[in-house]
Simulated assay, not measured.
Amino acid sequence: MSEVTAKRSVAPVTRQALFLLFRIGEERYALRATEVAEVLPRLPLKPIARAPHWVAGVFAYRGVVVPVIDLSALTFGRTAEARTSTRLVLVHYRPDEAQPARKLGLILEQATDTLRCNADEFQPYGLDNRQAPYLGPVREDARGLVQWVRVADLLDDSVRALLFPTPPLDPARLEEAP
């Protein structure tokens, strides 16, 4: 065995993860790529009456109606800017391991770059932000901080019940007289 091969076999293996980077205003955020199903251009949405302002609407995706939230509006109360880099990102939303993953759309600004790093490089930022439990740990690099967004924690119980009713609504029952 050569000396180079011997050194490679002794070197510790760091497990790197891939993240999709995006911005909310000037701030950088990241989604774990394993949670991303597909990145689409921004599409027209059907609004949902009486939903929170950050629920952008729904759209049909391969025969399934998918709810979409505007992460900028959810986080800071401002709708995402309509830029050429603003994307509709489909994620695997699974708040509970007992439930199957469902598709959820996220409107994200400047969702065009990725980051490959060790997930352990993200560290707690020292605040207990119960109003935004989806905002996870942060990682510092040459351009500042990037914060990990946890998909499973995006929706509270009331919005989850609105967007993903359990059991799903039966269209046949809609025609029944009240």
Rank of each mutant, 00 (worst) to 15 (best):
residue 23 R to D: 10
residue 116 R to I: 15
residue 114 T to N: 04
residue 20 L to R: 07
residue 26 E to D: 15
residue 101 A to G: 08
residue 37 A to M: 07
residue 123 Q to M: 11
residue 27 E to P: 00
residue 54 W to P: 06
residue 21 L to H: 03
residue 118 N to H: 08
residue 105 G to T: 04
residue 12 P to N: 03
residue 107 I to W: 11
residue 82 A to I: 07
residue 104 L to Q: 07
residue 25 G to N: 08
residue 23 R to A: 05
residue 129 N to A: 13
residue 50 R to E: 15
residue 123 Q to S: 09
residue 120 D to L: 14
residue 13 V to K: 09
residue 18 L to N: 10
residue 40 L to K: 07
residue 66 V to E: 02
residue 74 L to G: 05
residue 126 G to K: 03
residue 57 G to C: 09
residue 84 T to Q: 12
residue 42 R to T: 14
residue 118 N to I: 01
residue 58 V to A: 13
residue 109 E to M: 03
residue 29 Y to H: 13
residue 72 S to K: 00
residue 14 T to V: 14
residue 61 Y to R: 13
residue 125 Y to L: 11
residue 115 L to V: 05
residue 18 L to W: 08
residue 125 Y to W: 14
residue 37 A to E: 11
residue 74 L to E: 09
residue 129 N to C: 11
residue 58 V to Q: 11
residue 53 H to Y: 12
residue 78 R to S: 06
residue 51 A to Y: 08
residue 92 H to E: 12
residue 55 V to T: 05
residue 53 H to V: 05
residue 42 R to L: 14
residue 52 P to C: 07
residue 40 L to V: 01
residue 43 L to E: 02
residue 93 Y to F: 10
residue 19 F to C: 04
residue 109 E to P: 00
residue 66 V to A: 04
residue 84 T to N: 11
residue 45 L to A: 07
residue 122 F to R: 06
residue 126 G to Y: 02
residue 13 V to C: 13
residue 107 I to R: 09
residue 86 T to P: 00
residue 123 Q to V: 08
residue 61 Y to G: 05
residue 108 L to H: 07
residue 93 Y to I: 06
residue 76 F to Y: 08
residue 70 D to G: 09
residue 94 R to K: 15
residue 93 Y to S: 04
residue 61 Y to P: 06
residue 109 E to I: 00
residue 107 I to H: 01
residue 100 P to H: 01
residue 53 H to D: 14
residue 53 H to R: 08
residue 102 R to K: 13
residue 82 A to Q: 14
residue 108 L to C: 12
residue 92 H to W: 10
residue 93 Y to E: 00
residue 16 Q to K: 13
residue 68 V to Q: 06
residue 67 P to L: 06
residue 37 A to L: 14
residue 85 S to I: 00
residue 61 Y to Q: 15
residue 85 S to R: 04
residue 13 V to T: 12
residue 108 L to A: 08
residue 102 R to C: 03
residue 47 P to W: 06
residue 64 V to N: 13
residue 30 A to K: 07
residue 24 I to V: 08
residue 45 L to F: 05
residue 38 E to L: 09
residue 12 P to K: 09
residue 43 L to G: 08
residue 106 L to K: 02
residue 79 T to R: 14
residue 13 V to Y: 09
residue 87 R to G: 05
residue 127 L to Q: 15
residue 114 T to F: 13
residue 111 A to Y: 02
residue 14 T to F: 08
residue 74 L to M: 14
residue 111 A to S: 10
residue 126 G to W: 02
residue 104 L to K: 03
residue 85 S to V: 00
residue 20 L to N: 00
residue 69 I to P: 02
residue 109 E to D: 11
residue 104 L to R: 01
residue 40 L to M: 10
residue 46 K to P: 10
residue 89 V to Y: 00
residue 95 P to I: 01
residue 68 V to D: 01
residue 124 P to W: 10
residue 109 E to W: 02
residue 80 A to C: 02
residue 81 E to I: 02
residue 74 L to D: 05
residue 13 V to P: 13
residue 62 R to C: 12
residue 52 P to Q: 05
residue 44 P to Q: 01
residue 123 Q to G: 03
residue 68 V to K: 09
residue 24 I to P: 01
residue 83 R to V: 02
residue 119 A to E: 15
residue 35 E to H: 09
residue 56 A to N: 05
residue 41 P to Q: 07
residue 99 Q to W: 05
residue 83 R to L: 15
residue 94 R to D: 05
residue 52 P to T: 04
residue 102 R to A: 11
